[in-house]
Structure formats: structure tokens, C-alpha cells
Design a protein around this nucleic acid. Sequence first.
DNA 1: GAAAAAAAATGAACTAGTTTAAGACTTTTA
DNA 2: TAAAAGTCTTAAACTAGTTCATTTTTTTTC
Lengths: 197, 197
Amino acid sequence: MIYKESHTLILNNIARFIDLTELEKQKYLSLLTEIEVKKKEFLMQAGDITTYEYFITKGCLKVYTLDEDGVPHISMFAIEDFWTGDMASFMTKEPTRYFIKATEHSELLGISKANYELLFQEIPKFEKFYRILYQRSLVSYIRRSNHGISLTAEERYIEFKKKYPQIINRITQKDLAAYIGITPEFMSKIISKVNRM
Amino acid sequence: MIYKESHTLILNNIARFIDLTELEKQKYLSLLTEIEVKKKEFLMQAGDITTYEYFITKGCLKVYTLDEDGVPHISMFAIEDFWTGDMASFMTKEPTRYFIKATEHSELLGISKANYELLFQEIPKFEKFYRILYQRSLVSYIRRSNHGISLTAEERYIEFKKKYPQIINRITQKDLAAYIGITPEFMSKIISKVNRM
DNA sequence: GAAAAAAAATGAACTAGTTTAAGACTTTTA
DNA sequence: TAAAAGTCTTAAACTAGTTCATTTTTTTTC
């Protein structure tokens, strides 16, 4: 069976952890919704009740909150082959505190809460898929939460550059500052210092 | 069926997400190992290959790494009814970078990697249990990694105090500083300032 | 392709958090 | 129960990161 590019991408992502039969693949794909988000448009805004989780097949989005002073704090950049959404809101159906905005024209596959629950009934193997997916995300967030607390901004920048070389050239320095957790001015200083080294 | 206290505690923890039959409960308990760690002793040290994940039934432990300068960074305090371990090492069988040390005499239930895998075969419902457990941990680590980057030390202290009132009185100020990500001296200033307010 | 808007760079004055050092208080151990 | 070891406090001098203001460079829009 030949699938379109976006479907091949998501099936390969899933095949890292579980094997699906052709029938299961087709069933799974039938539960997904295709979504397009134009540059600068929102996939989600604070206050929304987010009933979808997303897989990015093309483009780049930033996931962020605004603090009391209206300053943005970016928690992730999501590009092709990444999963994103607000899991807390997805789980509890409470309004989200996050904004997700496309920094490039983006294409996604979304799964609704209803279909996500259905998925586990129809193809129980997906419990394993999500168990492993969450387990791995957890490992990287535990590390990031320690680094946020124990590394200097310069060290966090160097880490990010090493870990996500495919992202760093697609985002603005200002957004990178909002991810690293510093002002754009200080980000500018760090970058020119690191490049001079 | 009547279970001993530690078994009741772990079964109740699991019952939050999945229902087990009596037979499944007994099967599950048979896969666990009882472990005792005396105050100041280690459950795990950097370099170990950690083939167990743990549930704490009594006591308190601190999970930390040492940086290049030998400064400890605590990533969690684990008390009764918490799960702990080094998931990265448990998953990959690579040596851990963590130390886990009891700050009180502690009692744990451990599950070996082999039994963890066996568990999914024998009682597939456990995929769901771990899927939800990891999903919820993920939500709280995502929040913590953002807070580590965007809040001041004083704000992080106030958050910790609110979120873990049952822990704050059981740990030293020095360990709290290593968790918040500041020096013990600055921790001392913050506490006396916050108490004065 | 010119005008407008946004991003990046630079610098000076400021604040949050560190370092070092010393003394007081508490807990552990012999 | 005394001594030793570890924890907590305070303070002065320092460094990482912020704020605010201005200029230059790049990107977007019509």
C-alpha cells in the first residue's frame, strides 16, 4: 500500500515503537484530521478547550504562555515529525493556558479526544505506543527542567544548538530568547560571544 | 482479601487509573521486591545500571546529580506514594547519572526491568496504567521546566511550598536550595524574607 | 521596490543571585 | 554528654542577567 507523504511520516513515527497491520494503519489514519495553519496564525489560544493532539507533518510552530506582564515564555518549537498540543487541557478538558502559533506555513494531523479514546479500544497496541512516547518525553523534560535550574543561559544556548541544529536556523533570535528564558538583548550578547569563541 | 499496608498503598495508587481483579492484584504483587534503605544510604549511585523502578511506601529520598564542580542538583524528593528511579537508565540500560539517597529510613517496592516487561504481557492493562502515569508526570515536568526558566527563585520557593507542604518540613534548607537551584545562603535570605511578609 | 514594521546590536545603569568568610545554632556520634 | 560535624545566618564584594534607550539591519507589506 502506498501512502501520501504526511501519512508515511506519521506511520514511520509510530513504527518506532509498535508494529501495525495494513488494516490497523488504515483504521488509524481514518481517525485523523488534516489541519493547515498559515504563518502567524494560531492553532490554539489561551482559554480554548483543546480537544486535539497534533503531529506536525510540515512547518514550524511555537508553543508558549504569557506571564502576568505579558512576556512570552516558549516551552517548545514543534517541527516535522514532532507531536504537540496541551496535554493538560486535552486530558482534563479545562481551558488551556497555552498559545500555539505557526512561525511557518504548517501542516498537521490532529486526533480528537474522542478518537484518541476510541483508538485504545480498537487498537490496544496504542496504549504501548503512547506509554513509550510519554516515557521518552518525560526523560527529556526531566533533563530540561534540571538544566533550566542549574545551567547558565549561555550553557542552555549551547545545549539547544547541539540538540536541535535543525531548528535553530528556522527561528528568530527573539523567540530563542523566550525559549532559553532571557531577554532578547542578552540573547544577542550571548550569540555574538559564542560565535567569537 | 486483606493486604499489608505497603501493598494496600501501591494497589490504591494503581486503582486511580485501572481496575484489577483479585488474581491480577496477587500476580502484580508477586512481581515486586521489598527494599529498605537506611537514612544516608544510597538506593542508586551514578555509574550504576539501574534495573529497577521504585514505589516509596515509607520515608523520604532525594534524587540528584552532581555537576562538574561537584555541586548537587536535586531533581525530586520522593516520599510515600511517589514513584521514582532513573527512567532513562531503566529504559536503555546505560549507566545512570543520578544518585538516590534516603534522607529518612525508607521502605520501597521495586519492580525489575524483566518483571516490568513481563507485566505488560501478563496484564496488558498496565500499559494503560503507565501511559496515564507518564502522561500526568509529563504535564507536571513541562510546567516545572518552564518555571525553572521563567520564575525567580523566590517564586519557585513559594510554588514548592504550596505544592508540597507535606515535604517542605521533612527536608533541610540546604537540600531545598539544591532543588530550587540556588545557594544555601540565598535560600536562607529568601526564607527569612518570605516569612517576614 | 519604497515605506513601514519588526528584529538585532550596543551600551549604561540597575537587580537577582553568587562567592567567600565568619560566627551561632543543631544534630550526630563516640 | 562532650566534641565534632553539619546546618543556618549575616554581610560585603562580585557576576550573570535585566531594563531602558538609541541606532542599524532585515523582513514584510502594499
